[in-house]
Amino acid sequence: MNILPFAAILVSIVTIAKLRRYTTVLLPLAVTTIGVGLWQIACDYWLSETNPSPMETLLAIFEIHENGRLWSDAAASLFRVTWGFFLAAAVGIPLGLWVGWTTRGFEALNPIIQALRPISPIAWIPFAILWFGIGDGAGIFLIFYASFFPITVGTMAAVRNISMVHQRSAMNFGLHGIELFRRVVFPAALPQIITSLRIALGVAWLVIVAAEMVGMDSGLGYLINDARNMGRRYDLVAATMVIIGAIGVVLDLLIRRLENFDEVRWGYVKR
């Protein structure tokens, strides 16, 4: 009975949870254990041999860790996401600030932004490969494209949301030009900008896997495709999926730290 260890873990978690009050950690842990337990049951009774069990998946993680694929492919994915994301932020934030603040800029650029936004970054893969070839260039372009719209649109909306009172305060104290942006427009929009960065990074991490599955020869997405094609190693597929999820969580935790600065905390308080 493979399910026994999971039941034992669950019982001990529930016991500890009752003794102490670490429910914020232990409750999700208990739910996870139940989920993995169900996975195990499914493997034992219904699914074919090809489906990896939790233990096989864990072993596969050790395998790609030991042969180095995990690290080289994770590094390749992260490299593309980092560059694409930072380039998108470097262009998208200033553009969003400007377009959001000036009525002319908004009128001129908003329609085209809204028209390009619904085109999935995945649809751009053929052109990305045509322009940049198979490799990092195409990946960076796709991530740039994928994160550019959430960042620009989010920044634009943030600026257009700046309260009338703050705008009038700025006018009243004679703020103009760069100083107006530095002291009012940017800081007022910053909490929402950070939220849009979070969304963009999430999207970027989704897109890079898809992009690497279709049009690249390295990265975690490629690793999934490779594992399936070279001998139907579904345990490696599942292992890579777990890693993708874990890195996604870490990326979100890292970017959420931006929300803790004094300058932006006001933006996340419920009113």
Binding site: S163, V165, H166, R168, S169, M171, N172, F173, G174, R183, V184, P187, A188, L190, D262, E263, V264, W266, G267
Partner: peptide, 20 residues
């Protein structure tokens, strides 16, 4: 036009929450 020779104190809070 507005000028800092004559200053408004607003009904809602017009101070900047992002600044000390």
């Amino acid at each position: 036009e507005p000028s800092d020779k004559r200053v408004f104190v607003f009904q809602e809070y017009g101070i900047f929450p992002w600044a000390s």
